[in-house]
């Protein structure tokens, strides 16, 4: 029964029994891991606030599988959290800001859905840590940070929307039509009926968010931000084949 250590972000917590919790973690080296935190809900718990959603921690886990049966974290059983040390209590810092906290929930849910248990996802791990840090530092509006995370997470998963060329024939843009099932922007020849006609600024904002051009993203106007959020959410949920529970509850006020 090996012990292993890793860095992790807490994605989700669920109550278990009287005072325990099942925590879903995205670890740096072992991918998504589900583990039990014993006694976490007691006020005297040694884990304190470290096992709350959005926390960035260093964690020691006890794998329940025998040595050599599987690499740690790769099986579907629950590991046991034996020790934690906080690297950044991002969730706790954001709970006092409702808008940012709802964005954290959407980021955590998306990450959980885009990862598999036991399969390392280093780029997504670095992306979520960066997004949480950006939300805490408050350098950009929370809605933009969320949309930037979602669009980059999709790109990482292989679902990057076509924005500067036609999704079907690769004709260089800019194009005025956007079709989610077809994969993004579309030229007039390929455009299926019922395609959206977003503002040019909205597509430019998506390009800026995908490329990390924060000067352009911060300068965008409110209608473009609203439209971008809708397109990014539609694109993500189309590929996930299921709605995200937290996205409709994100407070963008």
């Amino acid at each position: 029964m090996p012990l292993y250590r890793d860095e992790a972000v807490v994605l989700r917590v669920q109550k278990l029994g009287e005072a325990d919790r099942i925590v879903t973690l995205l670890t740096r080296k072992h991918g998504r891991v589900r583990a039990v935190g014993k006694g976490v809900r007691r006020t005297t718990s040694k884990f304190g606030a470290s096992l709350e959603p959005g926390s960035h921690i260093e964690v020691q886990l006890h794998s329940r599988m025998p040595d050599g049966a599987h690499p740690p974290g790769s099986q579907r059983g629950l590991d046991l959290v034996t020790q934690t040390e906080s690297l950044g209590a991002y969730g706790a810092q954001l709970a006092s800001d409702y808008s940012r906290w709802t964005a954290v929930s959407a980021i955590c849910e998306t990450t959980e859905r885009l990862t598999e248990e036991g399969e390392p996802a280093l780029r997504l791990y670095l992306l979520i840590v960066g997004a949480l840090r950006a939300l805490v530092e408050r350098v950009h509006p929370s809605g933009l940070i969320l949309d930037a995370f979602l669009i980059r997470a999709m790109s990482n998963a292989g679902w990057e929307p076509a924005l500067t060329e036609c999704a079907k024939c690769s004709a260089p843009g800019p194009h005025t039509a956007f079709n989610v099932p077809a994969g993004g922007a579309m030229c007039e020849n390929c455009r299926p009926t019922g395609s959206a006609r977003p503002q040019r600024e909205s597509v430019e904002l998506m390009v800026a968010l995908l490329g990390g051009d924060w000067t352009a993203a911060d300068a965008s106007n409110e209608p473009a931000r609203r439209e971008t959020s809708g397109l990014v959410a539609a694109h993500l949920q189309w590929h996930l084949e299921r709605g995200l529970r937290s996205l409709p509850l994100v407070d963008r006020s």
Partner: peptide, 14 residues
């Protein structure tokens, strides 16, 4: 801090 605990075991948020 909870009554009956040791300061050294308190996490940074608490």
């Amino acid at each position: 801090l909870p009554v009956g605990g040791d300061l050294e075991y308190a996490d940074e948020v608490t």
